[in-house]
Design a protein around this nucleic acid. Structure first.
Lengths: 220, 220
DNA sequence: GCGGTCTTGTTAGCTTAATCACAACGACAA
DNA sequence: TTGTCGTTGTGATTAAGCTAACAAGACCGC
């Protein structure tokens, strides 16, 4: 086991594999080949085999991969064997939807605290999650040992909220605002920009017409 | 002008540039350098210059780029000079949030029709958008000439809805379900998987610790 | 136990993307 | 007008990722 760092591209595919493997298990399939998996997740079968091989020889030649075994393996890799608590900052339109979004249904993650400036909801419980005033954010995050935050605040406050999160030693931020955040090296940012996604989609449609696989290769 | 296809990676950055340029203009800045832009959007300055150069010589040496000119240019490239109507399929938790999400605020896109199976909301207007029964989807999409759909339906119905969209000659799908869709070559799919994003973030935090730039390079 | 069949793991080649580094050129001051 | 300074545009290089192709090895029917 060379114990080298997994390529970034591979890492991003792991959750996709993990989820589909669970779907297979739910359907009582205990065995799967890279070709079969390939069709379901739209990733080339060679890429799948290569991805898996970074973790050692997980499959059996002439047979394929054992689904339960693979799931157990990825569960640990992805830290899904323990519950991860996450904070939500900004309980507006989108924030509210995320409170109701059942992350816990297919992953061991849940939003355990939320923060907002709106006095009408502060100190209430929404969808089972307590809403604290923004001013208490640092304290609560430290007390509850929360290391990951989702931010759905107005874009012009995104950076200042981020700075506060940094002070509270948060390690990861899922950023739904369109701003690209400045953070210290200790924090990892993952951007989800809905407007961007739509614009990109439109651009591709208008410029990368039918010619050369609109699909089956590199979806998204 | 070599008129060759823009690299995929470049295309995905265009909306990011476009948005930040607009922010600059709002702040009455009419001039920007690749270095300055680089800091704001977290993309290497050489990459920015190269990206821009695919479209010809847009800047001036020793000066930088003219913001209004650049905006005008990208506006056309990104099809933002005309309104794009989009359909929403599945008006549940997340779907509702997207209806309220103001795409039109920073892009020339709007949701102009929505579809659902829930009789309680079908044939009503939600957030200014009419909700039609799913059974009318094909007809409405064709009548209204809508070529792009956002799907926020339960995952087990994602594929069948997709098949219907394909029949209605939709060209692009923004897929919020965790399933990877099978589509004909004429359709482009862009996936947004929230659970995935969180899992990826967690994985990176646990495995790509501080060492070697948690940030400043390749956010997301 | 044997032969044919299947599927992995991996090598090698290829494609795409990111970055360095600098000559070319326009801006701007004097 | 001339010289300096700043910033672009781009050739060259390095890095990352993808995929074809196949030998090695395990399964399974007989």
């Amino acid at each position: 086991m060379a114990e080298q760092r997994i390529p970034r591209a591979t890492a991003k595919r792991l959750p996709i594999y993990y989820r589909y493997l669970n779907i297979l298990l739910d359907a009582d399939k205990t065995r799967v080949s890279s070709t079969e998996l390939s069709e379901a997740v739209k990733v080339d079968s060679a890429t799948i085999r290569r991805d898996f091989s970074y973790f050692g020889a997980l499959g059996k030649r002439g047979y394929g991969y054992d689904v339960p075994k693979l799931i157990e393996f990825f569960k640990k890799i992805l830290n899904q064997d323990q519950l991860t608590n996450v904070a939500l900052v900004g309980v507006g339109n989108l924030g509210h939807a995320l409170l109701n979004f059942n992350f816990h249904q297919n992953s061991n993650v849940r939003i355990s605290a939320a923060f907002d400036v709106n006095d009408n909801i502060v100190n209430t419980v929404q969808s089972g999650v307590p809403i604290y005033p923004l001013s208490e954010m640092g304290k609560q995050l430290r007390d509850q040992q929360i290391a990951i935050a989702i931010i759905t605040v107005p874009e012009n406050t995104a950076q200042e909220v981020t700075d506060e999160l940094a002070k509270a030693d948060v390690r990861g931020i899922l950023n739904f605002t369109p701003r690209r955040l400045s953070v210290p090296d200790s924090i990892r940012v993952q951007n989800v920009d809905l407007t961007n996604e739509l614009q990109t989609l439109i651009y591709f449609i208008d410029n990368y017409g039918e010619l050369l696989g609109g699909n089956e290769k590199s979806q998204d």
